[in-house]
Simulated scan of single mutants.
Amino acid sequence: MYSSKYIQYHGLLLSTAAHSQESLEYAQNFPVQDTDVFAVTYPKSGTVWMQEILPLVLNGGDLTPIHTIRNHDRVPWLEFKRLAEIVDKLTSPRALVTHLPYNLMPLSFHASKAKVIYVMRNPKDILVSSYYFHQMAAFLDNPGTFDEFVDKFLEGRVPFGKWTEHVKSWKHAELADRILFITYEEMVQDLPTSIRRISDFLCCNLSEDVIQKIAEHCSFQSMKANTMSNFSLVPKEYMDSDKSPFLRKGIAGDWKNHLGLEQLVRFVSVINEELKGENFSLPWSLD
């Protein structure tokens, strides 16, 4: 039995604060344009980062949107209630984000030429980030102890279900050159190179000066200081930054400070079992 904070959608738990049957139906019938760009992530994999990067790449480095428009309005979620309210304000090429698996994308998406940037992150770091997010987000269930949350995460009793299912759905997507896979870790290690990859994929042909400018303004420190990006304007009754800041660390490998040996063995065993026989390899070792 799930709490009243969630609705179920094709077997996935979604927060009622951000989703409704109407918003999900709106997403299913959303008229995708050929010029649309979707940043697709499993939750806590770099979504907010892409909401910062994409507008700057698409508009040639103009900083206006990241300083004047809240991130969830400049690059809205496809499945959130808010999209219907602001969709008419979006200008082409439109940038959107989504946590939806491939099979739940709008029908018009499959018939379009819209592009996808799929951001992958080490699931052990997703686990840790999600644990802290559940602590500070009043619209999500209390995560319980960290050990209890490990089980919840592995069993898919968290928003948008199992990480393995999400990754598999997009790795098997038949999108040819319409999809770019990039990792959170490579963005942490070398953001300018990652932005160049995104720019080239979207045929934006940005100069090195613009690439460096975008990287500077999309650093973790810059986003954490930007009220249009750090969610500090969200009322405390929804997100309590005293319990944990929304933008917490922005690093790779924080799982090493949280997962004990027994938890690590359990985690790796389940993930490896669920990915057994897949014809793709992960960009990081889970051990």
Score class of each variant (00 low, 15 high):
Asp177Asn: 14
Phe267Asp: 02
Ser285Gln: 10
Ala138Met: 05
Asn272Phe: 03
Ser108Ala: 13
Asn29Tyr: 05
Lys168His: 09
Glu186Thr: 15
Ala173Tyr: 14
His258Asp: 04
Lys89Met: 13
Arg196Phe: 01
Val75Cys: 08
Val40Cys: 11
Ile251Lys: 14
Ser92Asp: 14
Met223Ala: 15
Glu208Asp: 14
Lys152Phe: 07
Ser232Cys: 13
Trp49His: 03
Asp190Val: 07
Phe201Glu: 13
Glu186Gly: 09
Ile126Cys: 11
Tyr184Asn: 08
Glu165Thr: 10
Ile69Glu: 05
Asn257Phe: 07
Leu154Ser: 03
Arg248Ala: 05
Asp254Thr: 03
Thr183Gly: 12
Ser92Lys: 10
Glu274Val: 07
Leu96Gln: 02
Asp287Arg: 12
Leu90Lys: 09
Arg178Ile: 08
Thr68Tyr: 02
Glu262Leu: 14
Ala95Thr: 07
Gly61Met: 09
Thr47Tyr: 03
Arg248Ser: 04
Asp125Val: 05
Leu140Glu: 01
Asp200Arg: 09
Tyr238Met: 15
Arg74Thr: 03
Met120Asn: 08
Ser169Tyr: 08
Lys236Trp: 00
Thr16Asp: 11
Ser241Val: 05
Thr145Lys: 01
Ser285Pro: 06
Leu104Asp: 03
Ala114Tyr: 00
Arg157Pro: 01
Phe220Arg: 03
Tyr2Gln: 15
Leu96Glu: 01
Ile251Asn: 13
Ser92Ala: 12
Gly260Tyr: 12
Leu275Met: 15
Phe80Cys: 04
Leu83Arg: 01
Phe201Asp: 08
Lys224Tyr: 03
Val116Glu: 00
Leu13Cys: 12
Leu202Arg: 06
Glu165Asn: 11
His67Ile: 04
Ile86Phe: 10
Ser20His: 13
Ala111Thr: 09
Phe181Leu: 12
Glu148Lys: 10
Ser112Trp: 00
Val40Pro: 00
Arg94Gln: 13
Leu180Gly: 05
Leu233Gly: 11
Val75His: 02
Lys171Pro: 01
Phe38Cys: 02
Phe246Ser: 03
Tyr102Met: 06
Gly61Gln: 10
Leu100Asn: 05
Tyr26Leu: 12
Gly253Ile: 06
Ser207Leu: 14
Phe133Thr: 00
Trp284Cys: 15
Leu104Lys: 05
Ala18Glu: 12
Tyr102Ala: 05
Glu79Ala: 10
Glu25Ser: 11
Leu191Arg: 04
Thr41Gln: 08
Asn257Gly: 06
Lys243Tyr: 01
Leu282Glu: 10
Lys276Val: 14
Pro101Thr: 13
Pro159Leu: 04
